[in-house]
Design a binder for these strands. Structure first.
Length: 867
DNA sequence: ACCGCCGGGTGCC
DNA sequence: ACCGCCGGGTGCC
């Protein structure tokens, strides 16, 4: 056995921990209309710009911090300063103090900062003129409601606030509001596309290949050798990333335009973001064995040579005699229970499989109540595997250092920390994220197959873990990357891309090495099956359609389509539901558009609308908090919000409260809640069950398929969970074994269902009923090779994502996708619009006149309704 | 700091 | 002169 300090920890995420919650893709019409523009407001730390003023920084000669022309500085309150409790310290991007804000100005800033009236950011306009003082431009950002207070503070102390030409935020009329939100929407869609592509094409052309050491017995594929080579370079290379230049004896960062005296610490590690199945685990094992200290292998047969005491870490230790570590074959004797350990064992299994049997690697599973918490023991292991739960539990129990002894995992100096399924630490507020950030290690890796789904904040956590200076500090991330990007700044996006690129390797299943695909996937084909309604269905449909058209054409004539979009949405949802099954509409018939005579009638109408919006399996988002609506209420103008959110709006605006969506007057007393009811809805649906044309179309396809080949498994996908319930009846009648996966199920149950469906045991289900959005990225449904999309989605990307759940690595058969579209219905029009959609957005982005865009949005609704 | 400010030296033209 | 002016000492908060 080799000596050496085995500072390696591999943190394992339980496989059950899929992320189902945050489907990033726009999918309801209302979302499409509103766009994703609200993304802008999602960041609480990105307030409104109140204005800026010129001030001076003094005392430069006492400090070493350097600042260049145009560079950002941060302002830090120093309430404990013995000379002035209003003191405001000025620091550069790298945290070195530059000086102080001049006294009188500091008094103003202290007041504003201490009362949280605004965030104050500094930029140095000219760089250093002399060695004693310099100019600084201070800008004030905050909530609109604090603007007056801030302005008053500033002027009362006879400073002059310069307000820039950005006179937004006064939407005098509805027209302006919608026009601008449309522009933002287009902008955001484009950014989102760019953002989605952030991790694409990250393969550096010039990375070479590197063979694993002999201890790895599985031969690496070419792309895995590339990854190994890249990872070794990331760990060993002392060169700085390309955005550092040496200028005038200082290290100059081209992204932040700042300089530091000391050589910046390079990131030792990165993000390996290859698609699932490309062998991230194997590559990592190869890295562990091939790149110990000084690029030498960890385990070489006999001639091992890291006896020298020149390790970067403080001590070396022989595996002690009291070691309880096991050689690989013994690992199964560990008394471990529960799902989480499956993943741990999976890793051990991989180690067992890929590491030569005569190489004795000390691997310890740090898990279970009997785990050995001795830090000397842990230091003596080559590899320690644990879960995020164990890590964060220990961290929060010991509170870092509070209760006497620190968490053992936080005490050991590791050589390397690898976060498996690293995207799970994307929430910086989560305990486990905090625990991970506090690990003491030289090298850091994030393995993830699903990098960054939602927003920049997710990405920040990864950057912070890697300690990619200076962006591990939120202020610089926000100012240099996050705010510029969310505000549509092209340079911001470029900087972001450069940043990500320098620490990430990502190949997808469609990437190519030397012109050849990394892996080959079976074909996929899409066919559209037109469904004819029966005469009776057609009559009912036409009735609903005529009613809807009347309403919408009135809105079109009045020019109020967008103002009444909730109504429009409700009409469209009803028609779409009708195309699937008449009973999806629910019991109550609606009188959309008819002016209610009495308050009771109005209330009834609103409840119906609310039910339409919420009860369809589509996920409505609250325009205030931008999450899925919780505790839904509907306003008299028929817009749906979370009760706490809209209550907040009403509280703060009082008598002037207006609906955030249509600017109509709203009152707390007029909010209508969704009555808790319809627990029995399911049984109601099933008692008087009847079929529909679409149900028949599906059933005949499934029956035909089963008679041709009863080993083929299918996904049956709908946006309406009620439709899935309806489909259960005929499936049972025909003796199909099926499972169901929808958004209402617990994580545990989902994992069970997926496992059951993926199992090849005899008698396992042939069909999975899947709600379109019930699945975060990464769910593997490769057992299925047929997909039946029962109803079209607004966003084709959602459908693609769904299909990718089975058309992925591990898929052995060609995948056939069937889309059922009711002939001569709103669905046909949706498909047309789907096709135009991407095109439309691109054109819209290029267009300067937002008014024009607005019209085309109305046109889209008109096209849907054939008006 | 090639500034501002402070306080001591000084004081007709 | 309880001023103005001069020029040296001095300098973040």
């Amino acid at each position: 056995m080799q000596n050496g300090l085995y500072k390696y920890i591999w943190l394992i995420q339980s496989r059950a921990g899929f992320s189902f919650a945050d489907d990033p893709v726009t999918e309801t019409l209302s979302q499409a209309i509103r766009g994703t523009g609200e993304e802008l407001d999602r960041e609480p730390d990105t307030g409104v710009l109140f204005g800026s003023l010129r001030g001076s920084v003094v005392g430069l000669r006492y400090y070493t911090g350097v600042v260049n022309k145009g560079e950002m500085v941060s302002l830090v309150r120093q309430p404990q300063n013995p000379y002035d409790r209003n003191a405001v310290m000025v620091a550069n991007v790298y945290g070195s103090q530059v000086g102080h804000i001049k006294r009188e100005l500091a008094a103003l800033l202290a007041n504003i900062m201490d009362n949280n009236l605004a965030r104050v950011e500094g930029v140095v306009p000219f760089g250093v003129k002399n060695q004693f003082t310099m100019s600084v431009v201070l800008s004030f950002w905050g909530k609109e409601e604090n603007r007056d207070a801030v302005v008053r503070q500033i002027t009362s102390r006879s400073f002059k606030l310069q307000t820039g030409p950005t006179g937004t935020h006064t939407h005098a009329d509805t027209g302006t509001l919608i026009a601008s939100s449309w522009v933002i929407s287009c902008l955001t869609v484009c950014l989102k596309n760019a953002f989605d592509n952030l991790f694409e094409n990250l393969m550096e052309d010039k990375i070479g290949e590197r063979e694993a050491v002999e201890a790895v017995c599985t031969p690496l594929l070419p792309h895995q050798k590339q990854a190994l080579s890249w990872m070794c370079v990331c760990e060993n290379n002392v060169a700085l990333p390309h955005f550092w230049e040496v200028k005038g004896g200082l290290f100059y960062n081209t992204l932040t335009h700042s300089s530091v005296r000391e050589r910046p610490q390079r990131v030792r590690g990165g993000i390996l973001a290859d698609d699932m199945g490309l062998g991230k685990t194997l590559t990592t094992i190869a890295l562990i064995l091939s790149n110990f200290h000084h690029g030498k292998p960890l385990c070489e047969p006999v001639s091992c040579s890291f006896a020298g005491g020149s390790c970067l870490l403080p001590e070396h230790r022989r595996p002690s005699s009291q070691s309880h570590s096991h050689h690989l074959p013994l690992i199964s004797t560990q008394q471990l229970a529960g799902e989480k350990t499956k993943t741990l064992l999976h890793i051990c299994d991989q180690l067992d499989q890929h590491v030569r049997a005569d190489v004795k690697l000390n691997v310890y599973l740090y898990y279970g109540s009997e785990r050995n918490r001795d830090t000397h023991f842990l230091s003596s292991q080559h590899v320690v595997l644990t879960t995020y739960n164990v890590l964060s539990a220990e961290y929060s129990v010991s509170g870092g250092w509070v209760c006497g002894s620190a968490s053992p995992l936080h005490t050991v100096s590791w050589l390397r920390v690898v976060l498996d399924e690293g995207h799970i630490i994307r929430n910086p507020n989560a305990q486990q994220s905090k625990a991970v950030l506090k690990l003491n290690t030289q090298r850091r890796w994030i393995l993830t197959g699903t990098p960054i789904q939602n927003n920049l904040r997710d990405l920040w956590m990864l950057v912070a873990f890697l300690r990619l200076k200076p962006f591990d500090v939120r202020e610089w991330w926000n100012r240099v990357i996050q705010r510029p990007v969310t505000q549509g700044d092209k340079t911001g996006l470029q900087n972001l891309q450069a940043l990500v690129k320098c620490v990430t390797l990502r190949r997808t299943k469609t990437s190519r090495v030397c012109g050849r695909p990394l892996v080959s996937l079976p074909e996929r084909s899409v066919r559209i099956e037109e469904v004819e309604l029966t005469q009776k269905e057609r009559e009912e449909y036409e009735l609903a359609r005529t009613e809807g058209r009347t309403t919408i054409s009135r809105y079109v004539a009045e020019g109020t389509v967008l103002k009444n979009y909730a109504d429009v949405l409700a009409i469209l949802v009803r028609l779409r539901q009708f195309c699937c099954h008449p009973d999806l509409l629910g019991k109550t018939t609606t009188h959309t558009g008819v002016v209610a005579a009495t308050p009771a009638e109005l209330r009834e109408r609103l409840i119906v609308k609310l039910r339409l919006v919420l009860g369809t399996g589509s996920d409505e988002e609250c325009a205030v908090c931008l999450n899925s609506v919780r505790l839904p209420v509907i306003t008299h103008c028929a817009h749906v919000y979370c009760r706490p959110c809209i209550a907040q709006v009403i509280r703060s605006e009082q008598e002037q409260a207006r609906c955030p969506l249509c600017r109509g007057q709203i009152k707390a007393s007029e909010l209508v809640e969704f009555p808790l009811e319809e627990e029995e809805e399911g049984s109601n649906l099933l008692e008087n069950w009847r079929s529909s044309s679409k149900v028949e179309a599906l059933m005949s396809s499934l029956l035909r398929l089963r008679s041709e080949d009863d080993s083929i498994r299918s996904l049956v996908v709908s946006q309406f969970t009620r439709f899935l319930t309806i489909l259960e009846i005929p499936l049972r009648e025909e003796g199909f074994k099926f499972v169901r996966l929808d958004g209402t199920m617990s994580q545990k149950r989902r994992a069970q269902v997926i496992q059951e469906f993926q199992s090849d045991a005899p008698g396992s289900p042939l069909i999975m009923l899947l709600s379109l959005k019930a699945g975060g990225v990464g769910i593997n449904l490769s057992a299925a090779s047929r997909v039946f999309l029962m109803d079209p989605a607004w966003n084709p990307a959602v459908e693609d994502q769904c299909v990718d759940r089975c058309h992925r690595l591990g898929q052995k058969r060609d995948v056939v996708i069937t889309k059922f579209i009711v002939k001569g219905s709103v669905e046909e029009n949706m498909v047309k619009i789907q096709r135009q959609k991407q095109d439309l957005v691109e054109k819209a982005f290029g267009t300067k006149n937002p008014g024009e865009r607005n019209t085309s949005r109305v046109d889209e609704i008109r096209a849907l309704m054939e008006l």
